[in-house]
Design a binder for these strands. Structure first.
Lengths: 201, 201
DNA sequence: AGTTCCCCATGACAGATGTCATGACTCTCG
DNA sequence: CGAGAGTCATGACATCTGTCATGGGGAACT
């Protein structure tokens, strides 16, 4: 019997997934959590075999949870399910030791299969997401450029970005200009959206 | 027995919700759809009592589906479930004749209860979303301002917005300036994000 | 030691953007 | 009808942004 921890902030989804996984004879949902912190705390106690974590949760990112679990419970395999699969997340997740990465568009059969796969030490990444990640390529942005571009995401004026990044406005403009060039965008806002879509920030 | 049509592009969620609803004795999921168009086509054939529609789907918006169903199948009550509850959607949904509006954070009990409520002609809107919608207030933007601001959302330069809206660049700048003033933002990008958050565009 | 890349900054310039004044046309409402 | 509001446009002005040249300092690699 594979003991599963399920974490998703959407109560409905979580309950439904639990119901669905429980239909399988060899799977058992032994704990549920609605936040990242809760997931970690619960995992410490119940020590599940597999943790199925939603990528987007109010507090801790699914990847952050996976990172903690990898350290604290090396015997527990972590897999992530997500609604919006951006390439960057996949890379970060794999780097954090996640063994399975699925969009929520897969069928329940696949989910159950992947739970078994990761439990036996295998890995599984959704082919479509993998292809997207490969096509997105590596980020051409330097760390600083990425920082600044991320602050630009909310549409703040350069003055504010400079303050928040503790840089001179001129430097911010240089970084942004460079980022705009690298992304092929026509202004920083477009560049920021593009980089976000690629998972670079 | 209440006959239900379930539409959600996320296969996993849809299957899970179906499993969950089927646990109830008086509910029966008679059809499922992965897109808006599919939902409408299927509904025409199976004529369900209640349609449970996800707000965000690849093709047609959940609200658009609700609108079609209200016309074609007046006997079918429509309710919408969503992950990201923005106030504007709620208003649009109610205007489209939707009888129930829920975030996916609710428990399955609530879902089942609301299905029964809307089936008997009642209405149900999640209290938290309702409060948010009220606090967001009505949009101060004129229709044209909203149009233009929406085009600005992607970060396009004014030149392109003007082309896409078939307006002169000067006019676009006037609308945007007005919108920026009304939202209290410091530039159009911030204004666009703000308006989006409020559900105005 | 030299090269290369990143970080940070400044200054200058052109073009994009935000703001304001102004005006014509249309529609609605009292 | 007149008032008010929305739509569309133009012109002028100040400011913001994007781009480019330039330079010092540090880290990494050859």
């Amino acid at each position: 019997m594979i003991r599963i921890l399920l974490a998703d902030d959407e109560h409905l989804i979580r309950g439904a997934m639990a119901a669905l996984l429980s239909l399988e004879d060899d799977l058992e949902v032994v704990a549920q959590a609605a936040t990242g912190a809760e997931a970690i705390a619960t995992a410490r106690v119940v020590r599940p075999d597999v943790a199925v974590i939603d990528l987007q949760m109010p507090d801790l990112d699914g990847v952050a949870v996976a990172q903690s679990l990898a350290v604290e419970l090396p015997t527990c395999s972590t897999m992530i399910v997500t609604s919006h699969g951006r390439p960057g997340h996949l890379k970060r997740a794999l780097a954090a030791g996640v063994r399975g990465f699925l969009p929520k568009t897969v069928s329940s059969d696949v989910l159950a299969t992947v739970v078994r796969t990761v439990h036996t030490g295998g890995r599984y990444v959704d082919p479509a997401l993998a292809a997207e990640a490969i096509s997105a390529g590596d980020s051409p942005l330097t760390p600083r450029e990425a920082d600044v571009l991320e602050l630009a995401l909310e549409g703040a004026p350069i003055e504010e970005i400079a303050r928040r990044a503790s840089l001179s406005p001129g430097t911010v403009r240089n970084y942004l200009s460079s980022a705009v060039g690298k992304t092929g965008a026509s202004n920083r806002h477009e560049a920021a959206r593009f980089a976000r879509a690629k998972g670079w920030i």
